[in-house]
Simulated assay, not measured.
Amino acid sequence: MTNSDTYPPALPKTAVPPGLVDPVQSARAELKAALAAIEVKANVPRRVEGAYQRTSVKLRRLADENPAGALALAVAAAATVGGLVWAIARAVSR
Rank of each mutant, 00 (worst) to 15 (best):
M1G: 15
M1Y: 11
T2I: 09
T2R: 10
T2W: 00
S4T: 09
D5N: 10
D5M: 07
D5P: 00
T6C: 08
T6H: 11
T6R: 14
Y7M: 15
Y7Q: 15
P8D: 07
P9M: 10
P9S: 10
P9A: 10
L11R: 14
L11C: 08
P12T: 03
K13H: 03
T14K: 11
T14D: 14
T14H: 13
A15N: 03
A15C: 04
P18T: 06
G19A: 06
L20Q: 06
L20F: 05
D22T: 03
P23F: 07
V24N: 06
V24Y: 02
Q25W: 02
R28A: 14
R28I: 14
A29F: 02
L35S: 05
I38Q: 09
E39T: 03
V40C: 10
K41C: 10
K41R: 14
K41S: 11
K41W: 01
A42W: 00
V44W: 01
V44P: 00
R46M: 06
R47K: 12
E49R: 11
G50W: 03
G50P: 00
A51M: 15
A51R: 15
S56D: 04
S56G: 00
S56E: 10
V57P: 00
K58C: 05
L59W: 01
R60S: 15
R60H: 14
R61P: 01
R61G: 08
L62P: 04
A63C: 09
A63V: 04
A63Q: 08
D64V: 07
D64R: 12
D64G: 05
N66I: 02
P67C: 01
P67W: 00
P67M: 01
A68E: 10
A68C: 00
A70P: 01
A70I: 01
A70Y: 04
A72Y: 04
A72T: 08
V75N: 06
A77W: 01
V81H: 12
G82E: 02
G83D: 10
G83A: 11
L84A: 06
V85K: 01
V85M: 03
W86F: 15
W86A: 15
W86I: 11
I88L: 03
I88E: 00
A89D: 13
A91P: 02
V92C: 10
R94N: 13
R94W: 09
